[in-house]
Amino acid sequence: MDGFMLQLLGLQLFTGVALGAIYVLMAVGLSLIFGMLTVVNFAHGAFFMVGAYVGYLLYQYVPNFWICLVAVPVLTGLIGIVVERYLVRPLYGRGIDYPLLLTFGLGYVMVEVIRIIFGKQGLPVSTPEALQGAVDVFVGPFPLYRLFVIGVAVVVLLILWLFIERTSFGLIIRAGARDPMIVRVLGVDISRVWLVVFAIGTGIAGLAGYLSAPMQGIAPEMGTNVLIVAFVVTVVGGMGSLTGAIVAGLLIGIVESLAAFMYPEASKVSMFIIMALVLLVRPMGLFGRAGLMS
């Protein structure tokens, strides 16, 4: 019995990592946008939902999961470019509340547009044939698709790290996050940098939505709950911190999964308990820095 319980705990741990991978992708995009643009993007959950629907629609015309996997973040990022250029950019310099309220309303608009086009009912999404079944992960059989999600998250994070830390444009992003005025003085078009960052953040959110679709189906409201989790992860990790988003995303995913196994009633509350405990000890979050909100 003890061995069986350990096996179940091990499987729940892997489930938590897979769940945390989705949370990490959402929180990384959210933190990237906030850390660079100081925009609290309340439409981030809507981009998550849009990514799932874009993938669903694209698959009807190009029934290839792998092509859609590449196309979805690109198309969602293009939508993000339009939003940043024509809606968010005019509000820069007016205070943090203005883009916050704009994206809050925009999220509702995007949900209603999806309802008009696809209806209010959810739609099932099947797991790609090549990723069906289970594999042995030493503690028992685990769904192959969930392992794939973990792998995609690792690859995306690695590419993002290389882009930010090993390219000249990434250097500009890091410099702009610390002091955009100096970057302007050096002759860099900071508005172009903001555009790229917003596109990357929303594109990653769209990818997360597409990856989660086979696990939960798609519905117009699917971005609401994950947006709440993404903000909790971002606050726990530290606003604007990519490292914090990764650590906190995995932590909350694992804790939520284990709580669902041991005490299901507390699974959704567990992340708020973690947030409260972290903020009591470190108000800026695990990896946050002071002065970012000012």
Rank of each mutant, 00 (worst) to 15 (best):
P90F: 12
F198Q: 08
M271Y: 02
L158G: 11
I274N: 02
E129V: 15
G223M: 02
I228S: 03
V17L: 14
V183S: 03
P283M: 03
T202P: 14
V229A: 10
M26I: 07
S212W: 09
V137N: 11
I81W: 05
V269F: 00
S126M: 15
S270V: 00
S168R: 15
Y61M: 07
T103S: 00
G16E: 02
T127P: 14
I159K: 09
F47N: 05
V88K: 10
T167V: 09
L58D: 04
G291V: 13
G223I: 01
G51D: 04
L144F: 15
M49N: 09
S191G: 07
L106E: 02
T127R: 05
D2M: 13
Y98R: 12
T103A: 00
L160C: 10
A153P: 15
G80F: 00
D2A: 10
L8Y: 11
E221G: 12
G10S: 09
D2G: 11
G203N: 11
I81Y: 06
V83Q: 07
A205E: 07
E256T: 09
R146I: 12
V62S: 05
I33L: 04
V139P: 08
V39K: 04
V235R: 07
R192S: 12
I117P: 03
L57I: 09
V152H: 04
G217E: 01
I172M: 14
T76G: 10
K120E: 15
V232P: 02
R178H: 14
A248C: 01
T202F: 05
I252V: 11
V269A: 00
L69C: 06
L157S: 11
F104W: 15
A213D: 11
